[in-house]
Amino acid sequence: MKMNHLLILSAGLLLAGNALADEALLKKSGCFACHTMDKKLVGPALKDIAAKYKGQPGIVDKLAKKVRTGGAGNWGTIPMAPAPATVSDADLKAAITYILTLK
């Protein structure tokens, strides 16, 4: 019984660590200059993005392309700047995957 509790606790800590790492990736990438978790700033709230695109097949790749190139139209007239070249494609997709888990 104690082993089951230890396994559950370990899994919870691992998942929490991944969430913190992904939020740190958003900070490092500059996403929070225009976005917050739950309120519109310059761009939409990250939780609103997650709700809009939840469960759509192929959405990570589609959003990665949009974020990489920037643009306007989906959330109003203010254009989104392209993702910095210093953000790798893998980090970009990891950040989007994390955003899509938000509730």
Rank of each mutant, 00 (worst) to 15 (best):
C31I: 02
N18W: 09
T97W: 10
S88M: 05
C34G: 08
A33N: 14
L102M: 09
N18A: 15
S10I: 09
T101K: 08
G17L: 10
L25D: 01
L15M: 15
T77N: 05
R68C: 00
K39Y: 08
A45V: 03
I99K: 13
L92P: 05
K54W: 08
L63F: 12
V60K: 12
P82C: 02
L6W: 06
G55R: 00
L7D: 04
C31D: 07
V60Q: 04
D48E: 14
A64M: 07
G58T: 04
N74P: 03
L100D: 00
A33M: 15
G12W: 03
P84M: 09
G73T: 02
V42W: 06
N4E: 07
L25T: 07
L26V: 01
C31R: 05
L9G: 08
L9F: 06
A72L: 01
M80R: 11
A19F: 13
L15H: 05
D61V: 01
T36Q: 13
A85I: 03
D61F: 01
K47V: 14
D89E: 03
A16G: 10
L100P: 03
D48N: 07
L9S: 10
A83R: 09
A90T: 12
T86D: 08
I8F: 03
A24H: 15
T97K: 12
L102H: 01
Q56T: 09
P84I: 08
T77F: 14
Y98F: 12
A72K: 08
C34A: 08
V42T: 14
T77H: 01
Y98E: 07
A19E: 04
K27A: 12
T86N: 14
S10P: 05
I99M: 06
A33L: 15
C31Q: 06
V67H: 15
P82Q: 11
A64R: 00
G58C: 02
L92T: 00
G71E: 04
L46S: 05
G17A: 13
K27Y: 14
G76Q: 12
V42G: 13
V42C: 10
Q56H: 02
